[in-house]
């Protein structure tokens, strides 16, 4: 019951962050949602992903500035600081699976990108 409630709450709390065209294909951008920093990415095929912007290896809010690519078909971003690669789908670090960053729901509504961090 709690889980259902939480899902319902999350989907209710979509925050518009930018227009879809603000995002470069295969590049990320940082957005501020309340006091949280979220890294949003637009991949080559037009899909969107959202991760925490905090790089757990370097302790800096920089993941949005990494190079976007693929590892075995899975979309990834490499930290700009020390190049650890994270899955855009799961947030898990490909080079060190014991480390992960949070992922957030993201969608486009009428050309506006929205994320849910609640």
């Amino acid at each position: 019951m709690t889980i259902l409630n939480e899902t319902a709450t999350r989907t209710d709390r979509w925050t518009p962050v930018c227009s879809y065209t603000d995002l470069l294909p295969e590049r990320g951008a940082a957005v501020l949602v309340g006091t949280m920093q979220v890294a949003v990415f637009r991949t080559f095929d037009g899909a969107l992903y959202a991760l925490g912007n905090f790089d757990p290896f370097s302790g800096a809010y920089v993941l949005s500035r990494g190079i976007v690519g693929t590892r075995g078909g899975e979309p990834t971003v490499a930290s700009p600081m020390h190049k650890q690669v994270f899955s855009l789908v799961t947030g898990v670090c490909v080079d060190d699976p014991g480390v992960a960053v949070p992922t957030y729901p993201i969608r486009v509504t009428d050309g506006t990108v929205e994320v849910s961090v609640a």
């Binding site: 690519g69 693929t70 590892r71 690669v85």
Partner: peptide
């Protein structure tokens, strides 16, 4: 193949 990475893109 694929869409590149932090090695080949730079």
């Amino acid at each position: 193949t694929g869409r590149g990475c932090d090695i080949c893109k730079p």
